[in-house]
Design a binder for these strands. Structure first.
Lengths: 162, 162
DNA sequence: ACACAATGGATGACGTGTCAACTTCCCGAT
DNA sequence: ATCGGGAAGTTGACACGTCATCCATTGTGT
């Protein structure tokens, strides 16, 4: 059905360059964050998410849902960050299975310290080099790709019929 | 200079969705490769690169240069794959420091077996959901971003795709 | 010929991410 | 009330990627 020859060479170049860009962009952000704020991107993502939420804390479940991480990844990352003193775990009254992940003062300081430079970097590598038109197109593109990957509400059916 | 307020909320949404898409796409490809061919993406990338090269082998240096990996990453990955029997190291006559990384018959079989399904998956999640116009815009976007991050690397890509 | 920098690669330590297995707890059906 | 399935998290094993460091070899200038 889908033959290799159906995809023109020029299109493969776009794919390849896209994959390279994806990676280089991530590495550039990683390096900036590390040198300006001594944070990794995963650390920063957790801190920022907590920072923006009510009472600077979230249940591990909700945290993972917000940033689309698996629960085991959240658990591992929180463990490492707890070790570093950036967050701490607190028992959850409502649901004895649950865990609150809360921002420590040090975590708060870290994310605040990172904000300026990180934002500037994203502007520099992303917003500053994209026109309004390109941005709008990119928005459509990401929507299309995400839809293709994860058709809403059909996951279970797909898995079972596979 | 670059304040947070300079980036509109709507634009941040594009950024956020782009980052999510980037990740989901990689995971989808990873899962497909793993289930259809028992290969990881790094493994696949190495095998494909070797497969396309003269005599199905490359010096570690050239291999790393081709796919833009650091030398230590190449070394680690080759070690793991040698363990699995997908590639093997061969001493390099010309330069006693060098190492040939060569495709084993098993590695050849693996990459050939992966090709059909992998291509189909990329079509399904990428080419099939993008119009010619969107593809062209994406090409411009990747170029701009790469240029902003690392002008020299962008030049190399241009040369190769020319 | 020789000292010295640069190159090619290996290695160990560490943080990251996934998968599978496990525990504990909640909740709905009976 | 209780039983069984599903949800929330943890854990261990393993692959991946980076950094710093190390070693052998090669190339260069004098």
């Amino acid at each position: 059905m889908s033959e290799v020859s159906e995809v023109p060479q020029a299109d493969w170049e776009v794919w390849k360059n896209f994959m390279v860009m994806r990676r280089q962009l991530e590495r550039a952000l990683e390096r900036q964050l590390q040198s300006d704020a001594s944070l990794s991107m995963p650390e920063h993502e957790i801190l920022l998410t907590l920072f923006r939420s009510k009472d600077k804390q979230l249940r591990a479940r909700d945290l993972g849902e917000t940033i689309a991480w698996e629960k085991s990844r959240v658990s591992h990352q929180v463990s490492r960050m707890e070790q570093r003193g950036l967050v701490k775990r607190v028992e959850c009254g409502d649901d004895a299975r649950g865990v609150w992940v809360t921002l420590t003062p040090e975590g708060s300081r870290a994310v605040l310290g990172a904000m300026r430079d990180h934002t500037r970097t994203i502007r520099k590598y992303f917003f500053d080099v994209l026109s309004a038109d390109e941005l709008a197109t990119l928005k459509r593109i990401t929507g299309n790709v995400l839809d293709a990957i994860d058709p809403p509400a059909c996951d279970e059916l797909d898995e079972k019929s596979a």
